[in-house]
Measured scan of single mutants.
Amino acid sequence: MDETGKELVLALYDYQEKSPREVTMKKGDILTLLNSTNKDWWKVEVNDRQGFVPAAYVKKL
């Protein structure tokens, strides 16, 4: 969790967005987890953008 109590995830792999609903991340990025109710796609925030990334590409910290 960060200082505001939000849950964080670590990008395990690079991911290039394939639609406007997704976000690009690089391996090693720390992202804010917004929603993990879907087992396949998690909603995150990175670089002031919100979108989805494959759940298998990130790990909760």
Score class of each variant (00 low, 15 high):
K27C: 07
G5D: 12
T4C: 14
L34Q: 03
P54W: 03
T4L: 13
K60A: 07
Q50W: 07
E45P: 00
E3M: 12
L8W: 13
A56F: 08
D29P: 00
W42G: 00
A56I: 10
L8I: 08
I30M: 06
I30A: 03
A56C: 12
E45A: 11
L33F: 03
L34N: 02
A55L: 02
Y57V: 05
P54V: 02
Q16E: 14
V44E: 00
A56T: 11
F52K: 03
K60G: 05
Y57S: 09
N35M: 08
K26I: 08
Y13L: 09
V23Y: 04
Y15T: 00
G28Q: 02
F52S: 03
L33I: 05
E17N: 07
L12H: 02
W41G: 01
K60P: 10
L10Y: 10
K59V: 15
T24P: 06
K60L: 13
T32S: 08
K60Y: 08
L34M: 07
T32C: 10
G5Y: 14
D40M: 13
Y57M: 12
K26G: 04
D2G: 15
V58R: 00
V23C: 08
L12M: 09
N47E: 13
Y57C: 10
E7K: 09
E17R: 13
G5T: 13
R21Q: 13
F52P: 00
L12I: 11
Y13A: 10
N47G: 15
G28T: 01
K59N: 06
T37L: 09
M1H: 13
D48Y: 09
R49Q: 08
S19H: 11
A55W: 02
M25G: 01
Y13D: 06
D29E: 11
P54L: 03
Q16G: 07
L61H: 05
N47Q: 11
L34P: 00
D29T: 07
G5P: 14
V9R: 02
Q16D: 14
Y15C: 02
Q50L: 07
V23K: 02
L33V: 06
A11Q: 01
V23M: 11
L31N: 01
A11S: 05
T4D: 12
Q16F: 13
S19C: 09
L8A: 06
E3I: 14
V46D: 09
K26Q: 09
K27G: 05
